[in-house]
Computed example of a mutant assay.
Amino acid sequence: MLLYNKALDANHSLLRMTSLLISWKTETVESEALRIFDFLIANPAHIEKLSVPRDKFIERKEFKKYRNRYQNFDPKGLFNAMKEMHFIVIERFVEIGVLQLDSDTSKYRVALANIPEGLKTLAESKVNSISSQAINFIISNLTPISIAGSDGLKKITNLMDYKYDVN
């Protein structure tokens, strides 16, 4: 039996990341943050499992409804399986000019004007398979958090090692 997992679909990832970048309207982005956010958009049920104090991000409990008993996976394993696909999508964004590596930092500058019109239309559509609830939660709550550190995205998502990061 074949099973489809949109988390491992490069085209769907391109759509998810485009949707995120359009909604976020940020000028710069780190590839690690983009990868973590893409994972959370593809797997909104994982938002409920964020390792944060009980009173922080109370609305994360709303993501229980995204649980699916047929999608039992190790989150870190799936995130690592998505790594190559993420790099391919980021490389594609660089090729079309949506992301431009900033030579002074390890961040990418975002040029929303370079998103192809067809992709932009599909990403902005209300009838696509992307959780706008997850995107809104990420933009409101997670984008201000740094990647590294004891309270960083790597730690609270438990998707990447963080113990040896330098702040």
Rank of each mutant, 00 (worst) to 15 (best):
F63H: 04
Q71N: 13
R54M: 10
H46M: 09
D38T: 09
K56G: 00
K126Y: 02
N68Y: 04
S150T: 11
K65I: 14
I90W: 08
A33R: 15
G77H: 05
L20D: 00
N128Y: 01
I41W: 01
E91K: 14
T121V: 14
D161Y: 07
T143V: 15
L119F: 04
A111T: 14
N167D: 11
N43E: 10
K65Q: 10
N136L: 07
T26Y: 11
V98Y: 05
G152N: 07
N5F: 11
W24S: 05
Y4D: 09
A42R: 01
I139P: 03
F39T: 00
S19N: 04
Q71P: 01
K155P: 00
M85N: 14
L101A: 14
A148V: 08
L78R: 04
I145Y: 05
R69E: 08
R69S: 10
S51N: 15
D102T: 08
Q100V: 15
I156L: 13
N114Y: 09
S23M: 02
K154D: 01
L119P: 02
S31V: 09
L119H: 04
L142W: 04
L78C: 04
K49A: 15
E59N: 06
L8Q: 08
F87R: 13
R69N: 09
A10D: 13
V110F: 06
E30W: 09
T28A: 07
Q71M: 10
N72S: 09
D9E: 09
M1F: 10
L34I: 08
T26Q: 12
T143H: 04
L2A: 13
A123K: 01
G118L: 10
H12L: 10
E84K: 13
P116N: 07
Y162K: 01
F137N: 02
L3R: 15
I47S: 04
A10Y: 10
T28H: 13
I88M: 12
K154M: 07
M85R: 12
S106P: 04
S13G: 10
N158D: 13
L119R: 06
L14Y: 03
L2V: 13
R16K: 10
G77M: 05
E27A: 09
Y66E: 00
L142D: 03
I22F: 03
V94Q: 14
L142M: 11
K64E: 12
I22S: 01
T121H: 09
D151M: 10
M160A: 06
I145H: 03
V94Y: 14
S131D: 08
R60C: 02
Y70D: 08
S13A: 15
